[in-house]
Amino acid sequence: MAIITISRGSYYMGKAVAEKVAERLGYPLVSRDVLLEASERFSVPEIKLARAIHDAPRILDRLSHSKQSYIAYIRAALAERAAAEGKLVYHGLAGHLLLTGLEQVLKVRITADLEKRVAQEVERSKISARKARELLLKDDLQRRKWTKTLYGVDPSDSTLYDLVIRIDKITVDQAVDFICETADNACFQDTEKCLRKAKDFAIACRVKAALVEEWPNIKVACHYGNVVVYPREKESKAGKLRKRLDQICNALEGIHNVEVHRASQPPVDAV
């Protein structure tokens, strides 16, 4: 099992790299279709999900926690695909962050020289270089704000990735070679433990998605089908939460047991 996430900014050639990696390895390519799946499953317009994953949260979003909800839906859809397919290439914003908690994920970031990106955008959109630069810088800023606000990290921080490849002297095809060879490493291969972990992760994400609207700061962990939820004391609404968890337990497959742990620290793999 190798799940490959390819993170990129606008017009970094990341899409081309992702497509070729998926083609070479014969893996399904996942990107916007996750939004469609989440949109259908959670009855949220796709445009809202697309905005949630692109624009930085505004003050109103922060108060209503709507962005957290949308991201939880997208994450649940992606985690389910990862658990079901076993191997996939995901490209788009924050794949490496959405799949935090999953082992054996090869996290790649593609970067490129700003001037080359500007030239590409000029050619693609038939606009001036100045306008293109402004657009790209604005887009980069949005993505940085988004990741910083929701995950507290800077997407350009290379410690978040296994490989950062600059498309300049290294071409798209050569970048594809590197990624495919690295994905072939033993540490990214299929194990019983990682399949189990992927299933648990998908369950935790589904439970979180079901609870996030009412309990936006709740954390959920799952180990071997045993789900543990970590509500914040002030928002716990104990009776209501228990009732909701019973409903979820009946509706979702693969859950053996559900526990509520109040006032205890959630584990690092909690979503």
Binding site: L106, R109, T111, S156, S158, T159, Y161, D162, L163, V164, I165, R166, D168, K169, I170, Q174, D177, F178, E181, T182, N185, C187, F188
Partner: peptide, 26 residues
């Protein structure tokens, strides 16, 4: 700053020998 480099390799999951082989190939 990753913009200074053609390639950034994280040894968290990648074996050092594999990293050296990748550099040699590049």
């Amino acid at each position: 700053d990753p913009a200074l480099y053609d390639l950034v390799i994280n040894l968290g999951q990648i074996d050092p020998d594999e990293a050296a082989a990748t550099i040699a190939k590049a």
